[in-house]
Amino acid sequence: MQQGHENKGRVPREDGDDDIIRILRLAQGANPPLGAAERLMARIAREPQLVTSVKATQRRDNWRLAALPLAASLLLGVYLGAQGRLDFILPAAITDGLAFSEDFPMDELGGMGEAEAVAGENLS
């Protein structure tokens, strides 16, 4: 028993508590058998550790596998969008905007008409 008497202030005092502490001092001390720590370390040398990290090369391979379907999905979306096959599911604000632009001549949009008019006025 290690310095049990110093524990008096930390455990509740009762009648006969000093006697209990004295009696407990009679209990055998237990020291590890000779070579116990060495036997433990010999077992440790044979025990594998739990692997919690993934090697960098494995991570790269995983990304490659995930990137392939993502790229294919993106290409399919671009193709279908370009063909206009998905217009029926797109918001009207997008598809109507394209139609609206066709109602106006190019010069109205680009300012070319104004430029020609100004040039004509200067000539006349």
């Binding site: 028993m1 290690q2 049990g4 110093e6 524990n7 930390r10 455990v11 502490i21 407990l24 209990a27």
Partner: peptide, 11 residues
């Protein structure tokens, strides 16, 4: 008992 008396640990 072992922790408090033999190993002298605080409660």
């Amino acid at each position: 008992l072992a922790l408090v008396y033999f190993e002298n640990m605080p409660n």
